[in-house]
Simulated assay, not measured.
Amino acid sequence: MLSLENLAVERGDFRLFEALNLELPQGSLMQVVGPNGAGKTSLLAAVAGLLPMAQGRVCWNKRDVRQNRSAYVANFSYLGHAAGLKAALTPMENLRFLMALRSQQPSTAQMFMALTEVGLSGYEHTPLIHLSAGQKRRVALARLRMEASPLWILDEPFTAIDRQGVVELEQQLHQHADSGGMVLFTTHHEMTPSRLLQALDLTHFRVQEDL
């Protein structure tokens, strides 16, 4: 389980939000919402350890993640605005490289299956420089399937994906939560209402200015 305790995040000298408490148990699908500048991307970056916290702590299974960073990192997958892919490599080569960073060696068949599941059958050996933005995003989403992490931290995962891809990704997020996973994400895409989908509104945690 992921939990955030009294979390505050700043950008420069400006505090984006504070006193944020959240528990994200297994089976959670949590969308972070709020206006531009509310700190949605900053929150996800802080949870992933890419941005320092001004206050509070992030816990994994009740333990501060700073006490055992490597164990926490092994349990989440992060997808930011940039997909973190190498343009000169093919989807297969990118997956092999990214999985090696996690000390994993999937079989060729497993990588083919992951790429097929995200609609990239026939493009497995095409360098990314020749693929569209949406196809590159699908390679990054195939990585999520390969890593099999319980916690997904996704910043605008629907970016550049076509209509059919949006439907498939919504299904993927729900399936992950349904199987006991956790998803913390932002999106400007209007999600289909469901029993799993919850919202974390950052406007409730804005710093109150003195009048």
Rank of each mutant, 00 (worst) to 15 (best):
Ala71Ser: 12
Ala71His: 12
Tyr72Ser: 13
Tyr72His: 12
Tyr72Arg: 10
Tyr72Lys: 13
Tyr72Cys: 08
Val73Cys: 12
Val73Asn: 11
Val73Gly: 03
Phe76Asp: 06
Phe76Ala: 05
Phe76Trp: 10
Ser77Leu: 12
Tyr78Pro: 05
His81Glu: 11
His81Trp: 05
Ala82Cys: 01
Ala82Met: 04
Ala83Cys: 12
Ala83Glu: 14
Leu85Asp: 01
Leu85His: 02
Ala87Trp: 02
Ala88Ser: 14
Ala88Trp: 07
Leu89Met: 08
Thr90Lys: 04
Thr90Met: 07
Thr90Tyr: 08
Met92Ile: 09
Glu93Gln: 12
Asn94Gln: 08
Asn94Gly: 02
Leu95Ile: 06
Arg96Met: 04
Phe97Thr: 04
Leu98Glu: 07
Met99Lys: 04
Ala100Gln: 14
Leu101Glu: 05
Arg102Asn: 12
Ser103Thr: 09
Gln104Arg: 15
Ser107Ile: 02
Ala109Arg: 14
Ala109Cys: 08
Ala109Lys: 10
Gln110Arg: 14
Gln110Phe: 06
Met111Cys: 13
Met111Tyr: 01
Phe112Asn: 08
Thr116Trp: 08
Glu117His: 13
Glu117Gln: 14
Glu117Lys: 12
Val118Glu: 03
Gly119Pro: 03
Ser121Ala: 15
Glu124Asn: 06
Thr126Ile: 13
Thr126Cys: 06
Thr126Met: 07
Leu128Gln: 01
Leu128Tyr: 04
His130Phe: 13
Leu131Asn: 00
Ser132Gly: 05
Ser132Arg: 06
Gly134Trp: 06
Gly134Met: 06
Gln135Glu: 14
Lys136Val: 10
Lys136Asp: 01
Arg137Ile: 04
